[in-house]
Design a protein around this nucleic acid. Structure first.
Lengths: 132, 132
DNA sequence: AAGCGGAAGTGGACATCGTCTAAATATCGA
DNA sequence: TCGATATTTAGACGATGTCCACTTCCGCTT
């Protein structure tokens, strides 16, 4: 965990106790938490942490490429510690978001779109997760 | 336009002046309006229309399959009069949402996903629209 | 036609998400 | 150490969406 500071520095982010706490939580998350969920969780270890700091910090992390903002839920954006390209599956019953590896799907035709210069894309799937 | 009433009835929706006004607007939209945008526009013709009615009406339309709710924007959901499957392209400069025909892209591999039963999917692309 | 009961509409209170600002605090370099 | 800069904080604010109690409307029965 001490190399969290190094990770921040490599992304051009000055390390502060608040930023370290947020980074530790969000980078280790295997869910896709919202800003207020992150605030609530990190505040348990760092009770003076303010809401504005969490929002500022997450925005900074996104700008610096440490995490990625995703529009996957109604009403709020979520943050994704995986910044490499991948797809998403959303369980219609629970609302849970699952990562789908980039190579699991193949999309073709996007190059032929005349009117659009596609910078990035992903497939968003909705359905039910099979119970094991 | 009188057949808006027929359209509503075919979807099991009792026609009222408010619902007709909302349906006329949203079904003719070639944008992807939010609930409050719809409220603002329809209110110009129907000034007593309340905000709660617009939200209730849109939810009813979605439940009855007349329109589709889409999670494409930060902070708000939008409504799509096209209920057939299609993809979306979002201009990163303007935020504008464009429809991309289903047949323009081909996605393969979703059947092989072991853990997920995919009910529906779409490709969401972000980039810049080419100026004509 | 009158009255009843359910459906629909209304206005406002309320909760949540996100932004902004001014003031306080911490940090870094000289 | 000191001062300039960066960061954090608390709270106000606006926007989105839900909820509630009350009113109004509409169809149906008698």
């Amino acid at each position: 965990m001490p190399d969290i500071i190094q990770v921040l520095r490599r992304h051009g982010i000055q390390a502060t106790p608040q930023r370290i706490a947020v980074a530790e939580y969000v980078l280790a998350a295997n869910t896709h938490p919202s800003a207020d969920e992150i605030w609530e969780q990190v505040r348990r270890r760092c009770p003076t942490l303010s809401r504005a700091t969490v929002y500022n910090t997450l925005k900074l992390f996104v700008d610096k490429g440490l995490i990625k903002l995703q529009v996957l839920k109604e009403g709020t954006v979520v943050f994704d510690p995986r910044v490499d390209a991948h797809h998403h599956f959303i369980d219609v019953d629970t609302g849970k978001i699952y990562d789908v590896p980039w190579k699991a799907l193949k999309v073709s035709g996007e190059k032929a779109l005349r009117d659009f210069h596609v910078r990035e894309y992903q497939v968003i799937m909705r359905g039910r997760k099979r119970r094991k």
